[in-house]
């Protein structure tokens, strides 16, 4: 009887932790959206899928390399990408292998390759996935491709909220309109 009580109490504790884990994830993300700064990153999406989390649009950002004076890049290093806001669009201020004492917002990107000949670091920004309803991921990719053909400049961008290195990818926009809304409208017509 006593062991039954202990097991049940332990299970209750586990259940609370199981509930807290996703709740904490949600809380962190909401905090960033509320208090973080919004940046737009120019991008080109593609549609792959994840076995458990469904279809997503993979975002290839125009910001993916930087010529840096920081030449000590070791295998386990990440890239601290410091950002500037240029008329609403994100621009790189500087990139470093360690945290710098700068007032700018930053994100930690995966280092992809450092070219020693021209001191250029290639990296992948961490918010590379935008999940969409499975029937909409492919039309989204087609839409972006069409838009890029027709427009003179790439007008597809990801809207990302950033605060102290943490981020939330809130939406993907084409000409400042949500890609999900555009597809919904197109399918209704």
């Amino acid at each position: 009887m006593k062991s039954k009580k202990i097991i049940f109490t332990l299970f209750l504790l586990l259940a609370v932790v199981q509930l807290l884990a996703p709740a904490k994830m949600i809380y962190n993300q909401e905090q960033i959206i509320k208090t973080g700064k919004a940046y737009k990153f120019l991008t080109q999406p593609l549609d792959p899928n994840d076995p458990l989390r469904g279809k997503y649009v993979r975002l290839n950002y125009q910001i993916n390399r930087f010529k840096t004076s920081d030449t000590i890049w070791k295998k386990n290093h990440h890239a601290y990408v410091y950002l500037n806001d240029s008329i609403g669009f994100a621009k790189i201020d500087t990139v470093s292998h360690k945290k710098l004492n700068l007032p700018n917002d930053y994100v930690i990107a995966d280092k992809y390759w450092f070219n020693q000949n021209n001191n250029t670091l290639r990296f992948n920004l961490p918010f590379g996935r935008f999940y969409m309803e499975e029937s909409k991921a492919k039309p989204a990719e087609d839409l972006v491709r069409r838009n890029n053909r027709e427009a003179i400049n790439n007008t597809t961008c990801a809207l990302v909220y950033i605060k102290e290195g943490k981020f939330v990818l809130k939406d993907v926009l084409i000409n400042d309109e949500s890609i999900t809304d555009i597809i919904r409208k197109n399918s209704n017509n």
Binding site: Q18, P22, M25, D50, P126, F127, R129, L169
Partner: peptide, 18 residues
């Protein structure tokens, strides 16, 4: 548990690798 955390990461586009 898996479905719950995967759905949250889907809603907020949390990139965390597999």
């Amino acid at each position: 548990v898996g479905s719950s955390i995967s759905l949250v990461s889907q809603i907020y586009n949390i990139p965390g690798n597999l």
